[in-house]
């Protein structure tokens, strides 16, 4: 808890939390992790490598098969301690204070590309459905393959991004938009899911 967290990870955490709360009435730790991971892949679309650098934190695959970042986990704890999130049964919700904090920072230019990526990732869960988005991301063939070889492997986001980009280009998706690449990628994972199971 004493570790100084980067502002990016705190921003991602509250931005995703608010969207999942808005759309689905609550969220869990692993859902914040999952959507941050998906956002980190889409972020490559937007980033200016000179100004934006990288996503700032990495993910491993945890024992339950979810992407996990220790920094993000600490950020969730910090938002709970600061009263931005609160626990309600099995789920977290965002408090009025949390909403205010996000409203104060959401338009900072510094976070704008992260916000675009987060928005696309979370909007996918509306357009495709939350259950399917989660299932698709967790059953990604590359992730499953890595888990078989290694315990808690590190996810190579850029490698997955290249595949998202390839699919987007092949279907002729507009390159200045994130939502169509995001929903196409999820759809691709769902369509290939059955084939993966048979392998």
């Amino acid at each position: 808890m004493n570790k100084q967290l980067e502002p990016e990870v705190q921003f991602d955490c509250i931005s995703i939390g608010i969207k999942l709360y808005d759309y689905f009435d609550g969220f869990k730790r692993e859902e914040i992790q999952l959507f941050s991971y998906f956002s980190s892949i889409l972020f490559f679309y937007t980033r200016n490598p000179i100004n934006d650098g990288d996503w700032k934190y990495k993910f491993i695959i945890d024992d339950k098969g979810f992407p996990f970042s220790q920094e993000l986990n600490l950020a969730i704890d910090q938002h709970l301690v600061n009263g931005h999130f609160e626990e309600k049964g099995h789920f977290f919700t965002v408090t009025a204070r949390g909403m205010k904090v996000f409203n104060d920072i959401k338009d900072f230019n510094y976070f704008s590309n992260r916000e675009k990526a987060i928005n696309a990732a979370c909007t996918t869960s509306i357009l495709v459905s939350y259950e399917k988005t989660e299932r698709a991301l967790l059953n990604d063939k590359e992730i499953k393959r890595k888990v078989k070889i290694e315990k808690n492997p590190l996810i190579e986001q850029e490698f997955i991004y290249q595949k998202v980009l390839e699919i987007s280009k092949k279907i002729g998706a507009p390159l200045d938009d994130l939502i169509i690449p995001a929903v196409s990628w999820i759809n691709y994972l769902l369509l290939t899911e059955a084939e993966n199971e048979n392998e």
């Binding site: 699919i167 092949k170 279907i171 998706a173 507009p174 169509i180 759809n187 369509l191």
Partner: peptide, 15 residues
């Protein structure tokens, strides 16, 4: 076939 199926998804059809 895979790409055709992806393009049948409604957000892509709308776009």
């Amino acid at each position: 076939e895979l790409l055709t199926n992806i393009c049948e998804f409604y957000p892509i059809k709308i776009t």
